[in-house]
Simulated scan of single mutants.
Amino acid sequence: MTVQGQETDIFDDLAAECDQLDLLLSGLSPDAWARESAAAGWSVSDVVLHLAQTEELAIASIAGDTGAFAREDGVSVDEAVDRLVAAERGVPPAEVLERWRRARRAALDGLRACPPKQRLSWAAMPLSPRTFATARLAEHWAHALDIATPLGLDYPATDRLRHIAWLGHRTLPYAFALAGEEAGPVRCELVGPSGDVWRFGDPDAPSVISGSAEEFCRIGAQRLAAQDSTLKTEGPDAARALRVLRNYAS
């Protein structure tokens, strides 16, 4: 990808992220699938079921279904996906895993084949295929943490986080709007797992967030509270940006 902060191919990195999660899931015992995840109210099996369901929604969107993620007025994305999981809870873990594998491969194939300027309907707004793939990478990464952390398993951070950090920065105007706030430009200077510095935004922006890219992504996924991070904020809007940061729709 040639967009600032996304030098590697997003489709290849989405495939690699799913492969890493697949490796984690393949080693789980039957008891582990029934354990509580870090996603409130969901078991490990529920989390993987959710990923399978949303990959199936992605396939429908790629096929042109503009109502693939439709929901009733007043129903949040979180509530909608929780209802989907509840409706199919209890499917054997082996079936859930194979369902996710089929769906994630089909969704990725579909995204690769999309014209670059096509707009795909999704939870909050239509997305380009590359941004759509970035959002899917962000969701798989966050839910991998939900699975690995309570089980005491390692899920190493990689430079694929660059895409998620880019997404978090890119959607700051949306995050501020959801919070009913206005803010000026914010730039980020983040250190990736390999030690590279990733810069996003106007280099002259007066507000700056700097520090760990992994922490930035965890805050955006609501897996870390901003006040518990080591990230530094400077300028009039940086601290507020970190507070409203999100890598997902609502």
Rank of each mutant, 00 (worst) to 15 (best):
residue 52 A to C: 06
residue 52 A to V: 01
residue 53 Q to N: 06
residue 55 E to H: 14
residue 55 E to A: 15
residue 55 E to Y: 07
residue 57 L to P: 01
residue 58 A to G: 15
residue 58 A to F: 05
residue 58 A to L: 14
residue 59 I to K: 10
residue 59 I to D: 06
residue 60 A to E: 14
residue 60 A to V: 06
residue 61 S to H: 08
residue 61 S to L: 13
residue 62 I to S: 09
residue 63 A to G: 10
residue 63 A to M: 08
residue 65 D to W: 12
residue 66 T to K: 15
residue 66 T to R: 15
residue 67 G to T: 09
residue 67 G to D: 14
residue 70 A to F: 12
residue 70 A to V: 09
residue 71 R to Y: 11
residue 72 E to T: 09
residue 75 V to F: 10
residue 75 V to C: 03
residue 75 V to P: 01
residue 75 V to Y: 04
residue 76 S to H: 03
residue 77 V to G: 06
residue 79 E to Q: 08
residue 80 A to R: 12
residue 81 V to R: 01
residue 82 D to S: 14
residue 83 R to H: 06
residue 83 R to F: 02
residue 84 L to Y: 04
residue 84 L to M: 15
residue 84 L to H: 04
residue 85 V to N: 04
residue 85 V to I: 11
residue 86 A to M: 07
residue 87 A to Q: 07
residue 87 A to H: 01
residue 87 A to F: 05
residue 88 E to G: 13
residue 89 R to S: 09
residue 89 R to G: 03
residue 89 R to L: 02
residue 89 R to C: 03
residue 91 V to D: 09
residue 92 P to N: 09
residue 92 P to G: 11
residue 93 P to K: 01
residue 94 A to M: 03
residue 95 E to W: 00
residue 95 E to H: 07
residue 96 V to R: 08
residue 97 L to V: 06
residue 98 E to H: 13
residue 100 W to F: 07
residue 101 R to T: 06
residue 102 R to V: 05
residue 102 R to T: 13
residue 103 A to M: 08
residue 103 A to H: 05
residue 104 R to S: 13
residue 104 R to G: 02
residue 105 R to L: 14
residue 106 A to N: 05
residue 106 A to V: 09
residue 106 A to I: 04
residue 107 A to V: 06
residue 107 A to P: 02
residue 108 L to W: 05
residue 108 L to N: 08
residue 108 L to C: 06
residue 109 D to K: 08
residue 109 D to Y: 01
residue 109 D to E: 12
residue 109 D to C: 04
residue 110 G to S: 05
residue 110 G to Y: 05
residue 111 L to S: 02
residue 111 L to R: 00
residue 112 R to K: 12
residue 112 R to F: 03
residue 112 R to S: 06
residue 113 A to S: 13
residue 114 C to M: 14
residue 114 C to S: 12
residue 115 P to E: 15
residue 116 P to A: 14
residue 117 K to R: 14
residue 117 K to L: 15
residue 119 R to V: 11
residue 119 R to H: 14
residue 120 L to Y: 07
residue 120 L to P: 02
residue 122 W to V: 11
residue 122 W to M: 14
residue 123 A to R: 10
residue 123 A to W: 10
residue 124 A to E: 14
residue 124 A to Y: 00
residue 125 M to H: 13
residue 125 M to W: 02
residue 126 P to T: 14
residue 126 P to M: 13
residue 127 L to C: 09
residue 128 S to P: 00
residue 128 S to C: 12
residue 128 S to I: 12
residue 129 P to C: 10
residue 131 T to F: 08
residue 131 T to S: 10
residue 132 F to A: 09
residue 132 F to M: 12
residue 132 F to H: 11
residue 133 A to H: 05
residue 133 A to K: 03
residue 133 A to T: 11
residue 133 A to L: 12
residue 134 T to I: 13
residue 135 A to Q: 08
residue 135 A to N: 00
residue 136 R to K: 09
residue 138 A to G: 03
residue 138 A to E: 00
residue 139 E to S: 02
residue 139 E to V: 03
residue 140 H to M: 02
residue 140 H to E: 01
residue 142 A to V: 04
residue 142 A to S: 12
residue 143 H to S: 08
residue 144 A to E: 00
residue 144 A to N: 01
residue 145 L to E: 00
residue 145 L to Q: 09
residue 146 D to Q: 03
residue 147 I to H: 02
residue 147 I to E: 00
